[in-house]
Simulated scan of single mutants.
Amino acid sequence: MGRFPAKIDYENIRNARISENQARLASLGLQKTISELRSITTPLKSPKRKHVKADRSSFPLRRSDRLKQINPSSPDGLIPIRRSLRLPSDLSSPNGDVDEEKEKRSANAPFVDVRLCYSPEVSSERRCMSKGRGSVYDPVFGICCHFCRQKKLCGEEDCKRCNDLDVDQPCLGKTDCSVCHSTNGVLCRACLKVRYGEEMEEVRNNKQWKCPHCIEEEGTKPYWICNSSLCLKKRKMVPTGIAIYRARELGYESVAHLLMDDLQRRADRKG
């Protein structure tokens, strides 16, 4: 800095420093431009290979044996028609078509007669000794309760459906709604008593008995709803679980009566 005159402006000092730096870089051999450095570091790109499509016109085309209907391993060279093991052999003709001479079945009838392939010893399973819900689980003849969803044979002594396995007879241990006749109105003895406070004998003698779903639609009994877990979830309500103990402690006859008062109190608060 001492070699510069004392009275020199800033631009002259700056230009002098730039020239000194350039001279120093030149002495060190570092005056290469950015483009030159990139050309040194960048690898050379290999030329792209052109894809040559192979000529396959001379090769034979592959065919499935199923399409050709030829089986080299069979004596006659034909593929046998696949049959389902669940269907009886006498329902189909040798050509694979249903015999038209057979009597046409109704739309809701089972394709296979369950009485021919049913074995109570194999299909039935004893799970719990419950007179209210039944003691034997049966996937064929048992009727599923809407609340507990137990597909059991009822414990009624005079029930011909569960004792004699007669599907044409009604189950005496399950309810049947006189209006909808749907699965929503099927309740076993235990669920009918615990969840709704009704006896099976009274419902059986009442030919005009209605399920909670139909009663709610008619509006004859306010806040009387089905308290099964499926229906409560549809209403975005929490299932009650085993609420019969709480209902009896509070003096209610069933869970439905407890829930009815709770819903009525909530409505009064909002109103």
Rank of each mutant, 00 (worst) to 15 (best):
A54G: 01
A54P: 02
A54V: 12
A54H: 02
R56S: 00
R56F: 00
S57K: 04
S58L: 07
S58D: 10
P60N: 03
L61G: 02
L61M: 10
R63G: 02
D65L: 14
D65K: 10
R66P: 07
L67S: 07
Q69R: 12
N71K: 07
P72Q: 02
P72A: 00
S73H: 06
S73N: 08
P75D: 04
G77T: 12
L78H: 09
L78A: 03
L78Q: 05
I79E: 06
I79H: 04
I81W: 02
R82D: 01
R83E: 08
S84E: 01
S84W: 01
L85P: 07
L85E: 11
L85G: 11
R86T: 04
L87H: 06
S89Q: 06
L91M: 05
L91I: 12
S93H: 08
N95D: 09
G96L: 07
D97V: 10
V98L: 12
V98F: 02
D99S: 06
E100M: 07
E100T: 12
E101S: 13
K102C: 00
E103M: 05
K104F: 05
R105C: 06
R105N: 03
N108M: 00
F111H: 00
F111L: 14
F111Q: 02
V112T: 11
V112K: 07
D113K: 07
D113C: 01
L116N: 15
L116T: 11
S119R: 09
S119C: 15
P120I: 13
P120K: 10
E121Q: 13
E121V: 14
S123N: 10
E125A: 09
E125N: 13
R126W: 08
R127D: 08
C128H: 10
M129N: 08
M129A: 14
S130E: 14
S130V: 09
K131S: 01
K131P: 00
V136C: 01
Y137Q: 14
D138Y: 05
V140L: 15
V140W: 11
G142V: 15
I143K: 15
F147Q: 10
K152W: 09
L153S: 14
E156K: 15
C159T: 02
C159K: 04
C159E: 05
K160T: 13
R161K: 14
C162D: 06
C162K: 13
D164N: 14
D166L: 04
V167D: 02
D168Y: 05
D168L: 15
